[in-house]
């Protein structure tokens, strides 16, 4: 996903330091203080979930820089 030649991240046209790239992921399973989450495109990522309290498979999370910021209704 990273193109190190030009410093762009996330493949296309978004900037990770800006809230624009907070993305919605779905919890698949728990992994200690982290959770394995799935993106809409099917890719999975380990996400830190300490800041949003207990999560369960199926929960949808707003994630920024691999850290969940909010549990979505």
């Amino acid at each position: 996903m990273t193109d190190e030649r030009d410093g762009l991240q996330h493949g296309a046209d978004t900037c990770i330091t800006c809230g624009d790239v907070a993305v919605t992921l779905t919890v698949v399973s728990l992994d200690g203080v982290d959770a394995v989450c799935r993106a809409d495109d099917g890719g999975t990522e380990v996400i830190a979930v300490e800041l949003v309290g207990p999560v369960a498979p199926g929960d949808r999370l707003l994630v920024h820089a691999k850290v969940a910021l909010e549990k979505l209704a």
Partner: peptide, 9 residues
């Protein structure tokens, strides 16, 4: 030194 990709340029 580590940083987000956007910072590289």
């Amino acid at each position: 030194l580590t940083c987000f990709g956007d910072l590289m340029r």
